[in-house]
Simulated scan of single mutants.
Amino acid sequence: MKANIGIKQENINKVVDVLIKVLADEFVLYTKTRRAHWNIEGPDFYNKHLFFEKQYEELDEIMDTVAERVRALGHYTPATLKDFLELTHLSEELKEKNDANGFIKELLIDHESIIIYLRENINYIANDLQDAGTSDYITGLVETHEKMAWMLRAHLN
């Protein structure tokens, strides 16, 4: 059943197009953060292992809320790896070294990419598509990713 929430269906469809790309980005970032958690080595193994765990748990919660937002708008979410890889702005490839600094640099770049994409869509969704709720929601996501990026950045020299 379509959502009857005072937003034109055409606009809801465009909002959902943005949200499913966000969901794909979050899923890829979650997977890369899990990879860092699973594969970290070195003298700071334990602390970084726990740090990455905290970050992927936060990303797991974000993915769930993005998917629920899509469902609240009356759409289904993509839910295959193939779909996510086709929709994401991120690369699943690891371009940095397989160590703490390499993982942190890679994840930081992805968080910043997501922040930029979200920020580019805040006013578009609020003003052009007349969906203040989703605009407010993704503003909150920007703040969450900014904090996560700060935590990553703080580990670098």
Rank of each mutant, 00 (worst) to 15 (best):
Y30Q: 04
Y30C: 01
Y30H: 09
T31H: 13
K32S: 11
K32Q: 11
K32C: 12
K32T: 06
K32R: 12
T33E: 09
T33Q: 12
T33W: 02
T33N: 12
R34P: 00
R35G: 01
R35V: 01
R35C: 00
R35P: 00
R35Q: 05
R35M: 05
A36Y: 03
A36V: 10
A36I: 06
A36W: 05
H37W: 04
H37C: 04
H37Q: 12
H37L: 07
W38G: 02
W38T: 02
W38Y: 03
N39E: 08
N39R: 11
N39I: 00
I40L: 03
I40G: 00
I40F: 00
I40W: 03
I40S: 03
E41A: 14
E41G: 10
G42R: 07
P43R: 09
P43M: 10
P43C: 04
D44A: 01
D44H: 00
D44C: 00
D44I: 00
F45H: 14
F45L: 14
Y46P: 04
Y46T: 10
N47A: 15
N47I: 12
N47W: 04
N47H: 11
K48D: 09
H49Y: 07
H49P: 06
H49I: 05
L50Q: 09
L50F: 02
L50M: 10
L50K: 08
L50P: 01
F51V: 01
F51W: 08
F52W: 08
F52Q: 11
F52R: 06
F52Y: 14
E53A: 11
E53G: 11
E53V: 09
K54Q: 10
K54D: 13
K54P: 01
Q55N: 14
Q55Y: 09
Y56D: 10
Y56T: 04
E57F: 10
E57R: 15
E57D: 15
E57V: 11
E57I: 10
E57A: 15
E58C: 09
E58K: 15
E58F: 08
E58D: 15
L59P: 02
L59C: 08
L59I: 04
D60P: 01
E61A: 15
E61Y: 07
E61M: 12
E61C: 05
E61L: 15
I62G: 03
I62C: 05
M63W: 03
M63N: 09
M63C: 12
M63D: 01
M63G: 07
M63R: 13
M63F: 08
M63I: 12
M63E: 08
M63Y: 06
M63P: 03
D64A: 15
D64P: 04
D64S: 13
D64G: 10
T65S: 09
T65I: 02
T65A: 01
T65P: 02
T65V: 02
T65W: 00
V66E: 05
V66N: 05
V66D: 02
V66K: 06
V66R: 08
V66L: 08
A67M: 13
A67D: 07
A67Q: 13
A67P: 05
A67V: 10
E68I: 08
E68D: 13
E68G: 09
R69M: 06
R69I: 01
R69G: 04
R69H: 03
V70Y: 07
V70S: 11
R71N: 12
R71P: 05
A72G: 08
A72N: 05
L73K: 03
L73R: 04
L73D: 06
